[in-house]
């Protein structure tokens, strides 16, 4: 893969920017109306940091992104995405290129980190409802020896379905849990940002290949 970590995060940042209002609107329905603003601030800060202090490997890029997200996002998605990127950095230690096996390991480590931090399980109406199906779809395609891009696309589709699923259930974590059944009918903003990020990375990879 000839791309750079900076460009990949650049693609994510652009996608978050394009969906800033959308994410904030979703969060206004069942939360505190800041998810888009917080994610935008976090990824724009990460981009600035990566530009100012260039990294030459994946693990330090992920770590730098993690530390910036931890200190700039502000809401619960800060420690959650921050922990995800930190665990991803650990999984990527010593590796110079990313292939589907490493991508799967990074994704698994990131999801485990989020679950440990947020104590969420599938069905709680959180990021996990997009991430767990994404991982399953990715690793199933991998086992079928499908190319990296197919694995990524399958992960995006599964995560998208996960977001649809969050509309049908009531929230058991975070601010939305105060609403109980009134949260039914609304998609989870965190699960939505997961899909936006996965799609941005997939499109970035597609452009390279």
């Amino acid at each position: 893969m000839n791309g750079s970590f900076l460009d990949a995060i650049g693609a994510v940042t652009e996608a978050i920017e394009n969906n800033k209002e959308f994410l904030t609107d979703l969060d206004r329905e069942i939360g505190d109306a800041d998810h888009g603003i917080n994610m935008s601030r976090g990824f724009r800060s990460a981009m600035a940091k990566l530009k100012a202090e260039p990294v030459d490997d994946l693990s330090s890029g992920l770590k730098k992104t993690a530390m910036t997200l931890l200190s700039t996002v502000g809401g619960a998605s800060g420690p959650l995405y921050g922990t995800a990127f930190l665990r991803g950095a650990k999984a990527a230690e010593g590796k110079t290129t990313i292939d589907k096996e490493l991508a799967a390991q990074i994704l698994r480590a990131a999801i485990d980190g989020i679950e440990e931090r947020g104590k969420a399980v599938p069905g709680d109406k959180t990021m996990i409802d997009a991430l767990e199906p994404a991982y399953d779809a990715f690793s199933n395609r991998m086992k079928e020896e499908k190319p990296f891009l197919d694995c990524l696309k399958a992960a995006c589709d599964a995560a998208g379905k996960g977001v649809e699923y969050t509309k049908t259930i009531s929230a058991r974590k975070g601010r939305a849990s105060y609403l109980g059944e009134r949260s039914i009918g609304h998609q989870d903003p965190g699960a939505t940002s997961v899909v936006i990020i996965l799609r941005a990375l997939t499109e970035y990879y597609q452009k390279l290949s």
């Binding site: 931890l70 700039t72 502000g74």
Partner: peptide, 12 residues
């Protein structure tokens, strides 16, 4: 946050 915005900062 560092800039005084509402939020929490794990590094701080």
């Amino acid at each position: 946050l560092e800039g005084g915005e509402i939020g929490t900062d794990a590094i701080r």
